[in-house]
Amino acid sequence: MAPLSIVSSFLTFLLCISPAFSTNSEGNALHALRSRINDATNVLQSWDPTLVNPCTWFHVTCDSNNHVIRLDLGNSNISGSLGPELGELKHLQYLELYRNDISGKIPKELGKLKSLVSMDMYGNRFEGKIPKSFSKLKSLRFLRLNNNKLTGSIPRELVSLSNLKVFDVSNNDLCGTIPVDGPFGTFSMERYHFCHTPFFHLLNHMQYAPWQ
Rank of each mutant, 00 (worst) to 15 (best):
D39T: 12
G111V: 05
A2H: 14
S79C: 00
N24L: 05
L140K: 04
N66I: 11
L11Q: 06
N65I: 13
E96M: 12
K138E: 04
L110Q: 05
H91N: 02
D120Q: 02
F167Q: 01
D48T: 04
P3F: 06
G111W: 04
G152N: 00
F167E: 10
E88I: 12
T186W: 10
L86W: 11
L71A: 03
S160D: 01
T177N: 09
F21Q: 04
S188L: 13
K132A: 15
S79F: 10
H31T: 15
L82A: 02
N100F: 08
V180T: 14
T23D: 13
E190K: 15
L33F: 14
S81I: 08
N147E: 11
S170Q: 09
Y98N: 12
G87E: 00
V52A: 14
A20I: 15
S8A: 15
L150V: 05
E190F: 08
K129V: 09
T50A: 08
M121S: 03
D72V: 12
V7I: 15
D101L: 15
S118G: 08
N147F: 11
P131A: 11
P19G: 09
W47H: 01
N148A: 03
I6S: 11
T186V: 05
L95P: 05
N147H: 00
R70K: 13
G152Q: 02
N66M: 02
K138P: 06
P179Y: 01
S25G: 11
C62N: 01
V43M: 09
G185P: 03
N147T: 09
L97C: 07
I130L: 00
L161R: 01
P183R: 09
V43F: 06
L92H: 06
K149Q: 14
S103I: 04
M189H: 13
I130H: 05
E109V: 09
Y192R: 12
F58I: 15
M189R: 12
F142C: 10
Y208D: 08
K132Y: 15
F200S: 12
D120E: 09
D168T: 05
T197M: 11
S188I: 02
Y98S: 11
L82K: 03
N146Y: 08
P107G: 12
N100V: 11
L116S: 06
V169W: 04
I106Y: 08
T50L: 10
N75S: 07
L113V: 09
G111F: 04
S170T: 07
N77K: 14
V166Y: 06
C175Q: 01
K114H: 12
L110I: 03
F126I: 05
K112I: 09
E127G: 09
N38W: 02
P183Y: 04
Y98D: 13
P3I: 08
S170N: 08
K136W: 10
S76L: 07
A32T: 07
L203Q: 01
F58T: 15
